[in-house]
Amino acid sequence: MKFIIENVNAWFGSVQSLKEISMEVKADEILTIIGPSNSGKTTFLRILNRMHELNPVFRMQGRVQFNGSDISTMEVGLLRKKIGMVFALPLPLPFTIYENITYALKMHGIRNRSIHMERAEKALRQASLWNEVKDRLKTSAFKLSGGQQQRLCIARTLALEPDVILFDEPCSGLDPISTAKVEEAMFELKKEYTIVLVTNNVKQAARVGDKTAFFLNGELIELDKTEKIFTVPSDQRTDDYIRGKFG
């Protein structure tokens, strides 16, 4: 098991955003999380790499184990190195394409330049971006298109050789063609990484996920194999949501 989540409750100020979430995430699978906005999907995702701690009004109860150890006792820098995150909007850092990838390596004390180059090429290939940028690694990352920027963000995460990658609605700001390319990159990654993908796009969940979890109003309604969720869900609310009756 990659993650064991037990009885997690979370609040922003006095508003409870997650209620008694318990679930497990297996190694080397894609778990997609679907649900309408404000259902707690993103909050759940950010708990896994402790990004929620940046919000001063956030509070939580419950326990999350990663590879068998409680994440609240782990050194947060190392935890985030092992659990990479790709955000909803493409967020390159204000550097060149190459520096975007080597930044995190440098911050983790990897100074060897040949390792930098090696990891950058590998990560860019894995993110299906290498062929498009190999001749302009020294240009600003902001010169790339939105879809390319998002794949750069994926590559930036991959360069750290993480265990898990968290995707927070990674295609919500992208056009269909860029979305297809990002999904293609995700399929590639599925082979080697555990992926948790939060998405607003039900069809994307059906295309990509091994397992699918449905969140509603901060509760985990159902978690099952993706085929089952999309054919014979056990909860009426899941059925209504994937048929587009609400959300």
Binding site: N49, M51, L54, V76, G77, L78, L79, R80, K81, G84, M85, F87, L89, L91, L93, P94, Y103, A104, M107, H108, C153, R156, T157, L160
Partner: peptide
């Protein structure tokens, strides 16, 4: 603030983020 968030999400410390992302910009 997204620059800070990205840097922290990559496992950089708060000071590293300030030193390498916030100050130069």
């Amino acid at each position: 603030s997204s620059f800070r968030e990205v840097s922290l999400s990559l496992g950089a410390s708060k000071w590293q983020t300030i030193r390498h992302i916030v100050l130069p910009n």
